[in-house]
Design a protein around this nucleic acid. Sequence first.
DNA 1: GGCACCGGTTACGTATACAATTGAAGCGTG
DNA 2: CACGCTTCAATTGTATACGTAACCGGTGCC
Lengths: 245, 245
Amino acid sequence: MNQLADHAESRKGRARRLGKNGDGAERHEAIYRSISDAIIEHRLRPGARLREDALAEVFGISRTGIRKILQRLALEQLVTLTPRRGASVTRPTADEAKDVFDARQMVECGLMPEVARRITEADLRELRDMACREREALRTGEQSTAIKLSAAFHERLARLSGNATLAEFVGRLCSRSSLILAVYGSPGHLGCESHDHDDLIGYLEAGNGERAAAFMSRHLKAIEASLSIVEEVDEAPDLHRIFGH
Amino acid sequence: MNQLADHAESRKGRARRLGKNGDGAERHEAIYRSISDAIIEHRLRPGARLREDALAEVFGISRTGIRKILQRLALEQLVTLTPRRGASVTRPTADEAKDVFDARQMVECGLMPEVARRITEADLRELRDMACREREALRTGEQSTAIKLSAAFHERLARLSGNATLAEFVGRLCSRSSLILAVYGSPGHLGCESHDHDDLIGYLEAGNGERAAAFMSRHLKAIEASLSIVEEVDEAPDLHRIFGH
DNA sequence: GGCACCGGTTACGTATACAATTGAAGCGTG
DNA sequence: CACGCTTCAATTGTATACGTAACCGGTGCC
């Protein structure tokens, strides 16, 4: 529950009198990113409760602002808002996991031809840089960083298609994928193989959208296949199944 | 601005003491639907301002609840939240319109094969009923109803794929499409041709997913082509361009 | 006569206070 | 000894109050 403690940085001092420096909106955005990152990087595990009071104190704003942020996270399905129980990090079901990966399959693969058509030298450089940093993070064992970079890579790729709506959608799917990995992923193995992204960049550089799409399809299938989807039965749910009824 | 008046129904009486009958959450949902419907049905036109006080009074809840709802609408891009200026119905740009229809092209067409595979007799009956009601609304000149039914038809179709994530995405795209039609649509002609949906149902009934997808593609292209996308220049933006700067 | 400055007013942003509901522990009873 | 009831604490839901920034008049000056 104190996994957010690293963000306290004694902000309570300035919290008392806020609003004179017009950083209101940016501050909210920063807090949103903090929580979002913490979830995506698995520093907040699925099921973790997010009490409004605690968050409000940690970030030095009142519950009003926190509620706004939690609501936004809920709409992106990163947190679950149970009516009188508060917020907690979403624990995706097996069905949701399948839906998310099916959706990624359709959208990300469908986007590759357009991306291959529009990609520039500068884009390629940036992608290579991201892939490189991701490999580095993997090598040095910085799991959190690697996870975030991987999601960022996929989103960046989608954004190169020029379609902001679909890019944003892919971004959300990637965030949710990170949650899915947290629940169903085998420990140690975290989704994207280290060299996969580099290979993908190669196809895009060659302008071969079809090959890129096919590779992306295999890539996503591989991630999904690496999941061990075993819906753990929580609280004696078999009573109904066991006794006829 | 009083386009919401039909929903007042003198609720102020019970507003004073709320919370004893536990309709809090459902009430919020109802208000959300009211506003959402009003936008989708073009009873609230793009650009219309949505003042928090006014909405709060009309629906008999405090601004707190209204803000929550407006925020949700903003995340679905039905309303635009300008920092110190309040909320207004989103006026989609030409670029957004293109993005939305490209996204629909990819997702809705891509979903057709799976829908054709899973569709049941009951589903077909329901779809036919919806298409019928839509035709009827068109015939009797009830534009608002027709628009909403058309969007509902497309979303329902997507939901038959079994992928909740993609279905929800399609739903949002349809809502935004409705906004786009409000801005760029030619008056009188409102998107889907009256018999198109019936034809589509025919292909699905035959289990021909490929044909259905091809037809959906033409259908969406036809809608997009019917738009008159002329980005009106709003506030003297050409001064810089006109005088060599 | 037009432009710029400037108060008043309106409406949003934030915090805080209160009400209501849920969860769990404690107690009593069958 | 176990089950159910009651009470209490914790936490969210809602409303309201206050501060502050943005619009819109008027007024004075150039």
